[in-house]
Write a protein that binds this DNA or RNA. Structure first.
Lengths: 192, 192
DNA sequence: AATAAATGAATGATCGTTCATTTATTTTAT
DNA sequence: ATAAAATAAATGAACGATCATTCATTTATT
């Protein structure tokens, strides 16, 4: 138990350090030496837990993506009415993106940059299936516009990434009231 | 004349090469040697036109941002009705993002990554003012939702970046019919 | 005493940048 | 108009710095 905890402690510290450095300085200015220093270990120790730098960042991506997905579908059941189900997922995602700012920023960076291996990106995409299923049902019921899931995602979920980026830069903070209005816009964009 | 043309030729070739390499392999795997080779010049030649690597990528960002803005407001006049004006700008931006894929992909990467100097990012933001002015007018006229410009941008323009990313990965291509529907979603999201 | 975890210094490779030199272009003098 | 001189553009090899990774050794745990 002790052993296993300590192992995951150092591994977790390394992942956290990588997240912080890559967010603040970019992948190209986040050398292994700095990652090790921030995590409080020696550079060589990284290679006890990860094959190399690429494996380190791939692992971080998958871990963050998993935590994101877990949050996105919290309290969601696939037998809810379409709008209600979407509302739950949307607010879950909003909550994640606006509270777990570091993680969400990192995901944004990875999704618009070729730093993560393609296979790993695809692996991370599988988690979203319940939302796609929900939209399919909404289309069948005539509640959701008959657009492709990509377009629906672009209008209903993706905008949150922009709001996150804005908030990150301290230009703007989204109040609860605003959040409800933002959801209304998301729903307006995809509802029939 | 000859001189000046040749100068801009090499400079343009270097910017184009940087765009291609950074898009395909990321900033960290785009060494000056490869940029030079792709542009057909010697590595040292880069330093005749740019101070250093950072200046090279900053310059590229500003150039692409300028071309984007020029396209965005083509044929736009600020005395048009709000919806019509927005429609023109939206389609201009859609046209740019879905046709000048390389440039748009590069902008996305720069906007969610700390590779461009902060001052340069701000410099590039100034171009969008006419769109913000249009939205302000729309709010005054009661046509556009009384949301902050950031939120309006997030729902009306930012989704195009996602569609671009999808198209880039060859999962999906946006037909003209779909483009009109996509505009409808954008307008639905921000109209009162 | 045996095994596992962690280390720091060393290595080899890569990269950004520089500079002495070469090549091309423009200007000047005849 | 042409050759020589002056200037500008371009180069490739080389330098120093930085980085990812390794390994012999030390430290901690079993």
């Amino acid at each position: 138990m002790e052993t296993k905890e300590k192992i995951t402690n150092k591994k977790a510290a390394l992942l956290q350090a990588t997240l912080t450095l890559v967010n603040n300085h970019g992948f190209h200015k986040s050398p292994m030496s700095k990652i090790a220093k921030l995590a409080g270990v020696a550079p060589a120790t990284i290679y006890l837990y990860f094959e190399n730098k690429q494996d380190l960042i791939n692992s971080l991506y998958l871990e963050v993506k998993a935590s994101f997905s877990e949050c996105a579908f919290k309290a969601y059941q696939d037998d809810l009415p379409v709008k209600k189900g979407f509302e739950i997922i949307w607010h879950n995602i909003a909550h994640y993106k606006l509270n777990q700012i570091d993680e969400a920023t990192f995901l944004s960076q990875c999704d618009s940059t070729p730093i993560i291996d393609e296979e790993v990106i695809e692996e991370g995409l599988k988690h979203l299936q319940p939302l796609l299923d929900l939209w399919e049902r909404g289309k069948k019921e005539g509640i959701v516009k008959p657009l492709s899931n990509y377009i629906l995602y672009a209008y209903a979920v993706y905008p949150l990434s922009f709001l996150l980026a804005i908030q990150e830069k301290d230009f703007y903070t989204l109040s609860d009231k605003m959040r409800k209005k933002a959801f209304q816009s998301a729903w307006d964009a995809i509802k029939v």
